[in-house]
Computed example of a mutant assay.
Amino acid sequence: MQLETYISDLLYRYDCVTIPEFGAFLTQRLSAKIHESTHTFYPPKKALSFNEQLQQNDGLLANYIAEVEKIPYTTALIKVSKQVKSIKSLLAEGETIQLENIGELVLNADEKTQFSPSNSINYLTDAFGLSHFTSSDVNREIYKETVEAIEDVTPIVLTPEKRSNRNWLKYAAAAVLFLGVGGFVATAYYNNSIESHNQLAQEEANEQLDAKVQEATFVISNPLPAATLSLEKQSGNYHIVAGAFRVEANSERKVKQLRDKGFKARKIGMNRYGLHEVVYASFETREDAQRELYKVRREHNRDAWLLIKKLD
């Protein structure tokens, strides 16, 4: 059993995942930051830590394993206990435990478990797809002093141009006035002619339309064919769970709400606890389901989770 795989899945949805009789992995949200010396921009993330004091079983890990592997809860709890004993034995021998996408565990000189988190994955679904990047320095050049120095050496002097004869301006103004009045009169005449022509054409068109309506007989000789509605049947063993409900009417109401939002929601039956399960959609492959799960967590419900279940 790959215990780190189940822990990693739960860390996307929960801030605390407890391993009974061993400890708990905790997450804390950190804001985006900028490294001043390297000019590197880091996106927001969940910082991962380990607390050896939290060993009380809360049922979260064992329940998830039981659902995924389709085994009883007690059997899942026994498998977790065996894995914990193996990890403790290796740590006592001085081994370093590598948990993929989580980090490293090792015993220090005081026989305490020391944890070094991995930086290969960001468990904050809001920051999915974001990575750090480095920006170069922005150099701002100042030209003010250079301009002032040029002005001191070569001052700019504006000299108005002299005109000896301005009589031609009078004739030009008179010509412009004459052309403006003539153009206004011609435009008014043209607009009036166009308006009269359009009015006559509209009246003629209305008379023809009235005649056609009076003579028309409405017979539907070629009725439209009957509409055929094809429904896409949901299939696949990978389901994105929206919730489980004790009352069936509540599950049907949840399905309607999700379908109104564009999801291919449906009920997939009752689980081992007698709850009616509602899913956003079902998929044939784990990759497609995981891709849609990230989208649902980011845009709709951060508590949605993946269920692997073969339906009858």
Rank of each mutant, 00 (worst) to 15 (best):
P43Y: 06
I150Y: 05
K256Y: 13
S86V: 05
A304S: 10
F245N: 01
Q234T: 15
E93R: 05
I308W: 02
A174D: 14
E232C: 11
P20N: 11
E248F: 07
D210A: 14
E151A: 07
V153Q: 05
T228E: 07
P43R: 07
S116L: 07
I87A: 08
K46Y: 02
E151C: 03
Y14S: 13
K45R: 13
V219T: 10
V213W: 10
N250G: 10
N250P: 00
N250D: 01
S89W: 12
V84I: 06
V181I: 13
T146D: 08
M270Y: 08
G269F: 02
T146K: 03
W305I: 06
S221E: 13
Q28F: 04
K310I: 14
K309Y: 12
Q208W: 15
Q234I: 15
F178C: 09
Y64H: 14
S116R: 05
G129N: 09
L311A: 02
V68G: 00
Y42H: 13
D210V: 10
A47P: 09
R140Y: 01
Q83D: 05
V138K: 03
G59A: 07
Q199I: 13
L26M: 11
F178E: 02
T217M: 07
E104D: 01
L306Y: 02
K256D: 08
S86W: 15
I78A: 09
T5L: 08
I65N: 00
T96Y: 08
H132I: 01
V17C: 01
A109C: 02
V147Q: 09
N101H: 08
D303F: 15
K33H: 03
K162P: 09
K112F: 10
L60I: 15
R298C: 05
K233A: 14
E195K: 06
L77G: 15
L307E: 01
N51V: 04
K112L: 12
L99P: 00
E67A: 13
S230C: 08
K162L: 07
R246C: 06
I71P: 00
V157P: 02
S282V: 09
K162E: 14
E52M: 11
V219R: 09
L107H: 03
A211E: 13
E203N: 14
Y189V: 12
L107N: 01
S116V: 04
A304K: 00
Q234H: 06
A62C: 10
T125R: 11
E252H: 09
T228V: 09
E21C: 14
K46T: 01
G262N: 09
L91I: 09
L30M: 06
L229C: 11
Y294K: 11
F25R: 01
S193N: 13
F25N: 03
A62F: 01
L124N: 01
E299P: 01
Q114K: 12
E299I: 05
V138T: 04
F50L: 03
K310N: 00
L105T: 05
S135G: 14
Q98I: 10
T113D: 00
S89P: 12
R253P: 06
L130I: 04
I220Y: 04
F178G: 07
I220M: 14
F263C: 10
N206T: 10
H197S: 15
S135Q: 04
R163Q: 11
V84M: 01
V241D: 03
N139G: 03
R302M: 12
T228L: 15
F218H: 04
S120V: 11
Q208H: 10
W168F: 15
E4H: 07
I71H: 04
I240K: 05
K254N: 12
